[in-house]
Computed example of a mutant assay.
Amino acid sequence: MAQATLTITMPEQVWMWQVSTAYPETTFRMLEAVPGAGSGFALVRLTGADVAEAVDELDDHPQVSNLSIAGRTDDEATVYFDTTAPLLLFSSRESGIPIDLPVEIRDGEAAVDVTGSREQLATLAERLEQVGLRYRIERVEERPYESQLLSERQLEVVVTAVDEGYYDTPRRCSLTELADHLGIAKSTCSETLHRAEEAIVKRFVDEIPDSSPERLEDRLASD
């Protein structure tokens, strides 16, 4: 499986671009999104100084209907509504690759994470271009299943170490106490933790984003 992070620029004719660029200091975080036959449902949280005005503009937008407010404060509001222009949802559905939520939209651009096969990612790229969504690739990499990162034993030891407070500051559980809790030798516990920590840290470093703005197809083809 491959994982990609994209920054997608919305077309000027859709509500996401129009409202988010009208209020560039407001962040629109799409929490839930469900595509329908010709429309879509969205649950969106808005944060920023102009939340009230942005919600009013959303409510008045011709591509938005049935807007309701689920929660509201001076600088935050959560709303849900139907829209006739869910381009991201349609692109995701037609390429067969889900978009990881939440999606953050600000000043006309959406930060999107997707995970799928390289063929699915290439199909998504084609679909984005077909509906007028410009994008730049921030990162693309192979991502093994989580079960491949740690063995079952390593996972058990790491989870137990967290639960028992071994990684707390100050530490609530010593290595000796952790080994006793697991019923294994202290040396075995130490070695298992070290190998698991090595895998986790290397994964973390590997996932530091690459800012090179290459096209998705080019990155997929070159890897």
Results as ranks from 00 to 15, higher is better:
121 L>P: 03
69 I>K: 10
82 D>K: 06
77 A>M: 04
158 V>K: 04
136 R>H: 13
86 P>T: 05
91 S>H: 08
90 F>K: 07
156 E>I: 00
102 P>T: 05
157 V>W: 03
115 T>D: 02
142 E>Y: 14
125 A>P: 09
76 E>F: 07
92 S>H: 11
77 A>H: 10
138 E>D: 15
115 T>M: 06
105 I>K: 00
128 L>S: 08
122 A>Q: 15
111 A>M: 12
74 D>S: 13
112 V>Q: 00
85 A>W: 09
118 R>F: 08
147 S>G: 01
85 A>N: 11
149 L>H: 04
141 E>R: 12
72 R>N: 07
160 T>G: 02
88 L>Y: 02
120 Q>F: 04
74 D>F: 11
98 P>T: 04
124 L>Y: 15
124 L>M: 12
133 L>V: 05
150 L>S: 04
81 F>T: 03
95 S>Q: 02
105 I>N: 00
120 Q>D: 07
104 E>M: 04
80 Y>F: 15
157 V>F: 04
65 S>F: 03
67 L>I: 10
142 E>D: 13
126 E>W: 12
68 S>V: 13
152 E>T: 13
160 T>P: 05
126 E>F: 06
113 D>G: 02
92 S>L: 05
65 S>A: 08
112 V>H: 00
137 I>P: 01
119 E>M: 02
79 V>E: 06
136 R>A: 06
87 L>E: 01
89 L>M: 14
68 S>R: 13
138 E>N: 13
67 L>C: 08
138 E>K: 08
100 D>T: 12
78 T>L: 12
158 V>N: 09
81 F>E: 05
151 S>Y: 13
66 N>A: 03
64 V>P: 00
93 R>H: 15
129 E>F: 07
74 D>H: 13
74 D>N: 11
